[in-house]
Design a protein around this nucleic acid. Sequence first.
DNA 1: TTAGTGATATCC
DNA 2: GATATCACTAAA
Length: 169
Amino acid sequence: MILGKEFFYRDCLDVAPELVGKILVRRFDNGEEIRVRITETEAYRGVEDKACHASKGRTPRTEILYGESGIIYVYLCYGIHWLMNVITGEKEQPQGVLFRAGEGYNGPAKLTKALQIDKSFKYKALYDNSEIWVEDDGLRPEIRTDKRVGIDYAGEEWVNKPWRFIMVR
DNA sequence: TTAGTGATATCC
DNA sequence: GATATCACTAAA
């Protein structure tokens, strides 16, 4: 079953753990498909979340976070790495979920590299789309939560939020 | 532990 | 226009 728009139209703290264990499918121009089990996600929740890009205000860059749920937000990190997020929640509420790892791909940039995701995917939909989508194969994995990483600048209060979701098995 | 990399934001 | 920052990775 392919996840539809309504799946993403909820709070990121609901969406992020449910995305863990789902299958991310990428179809290339030549018809080839790559299927990757999502093993790790992180939630970024609104202007109050200092780790969320939108916390610094609405800018051309963060505009997308305020928009439609299920839209892909691709972000270039450290000049080298593309990180993939999906927008969740109500409109005007800037929140999203970062795809942090997939089976066989530990690390958000490795995932996007394997799937050949770059800035051209920004503003594309993660549902009802012939290039990339998420499928539910019925697996309900055991999930554990942990603190988010790589956001030391956000301050202890936000670093310590258990908003990272990891598949145990 | 450090270099590498470039888009963005925030200053002039 | 210039600079500082950054949700990372690979090599050592």
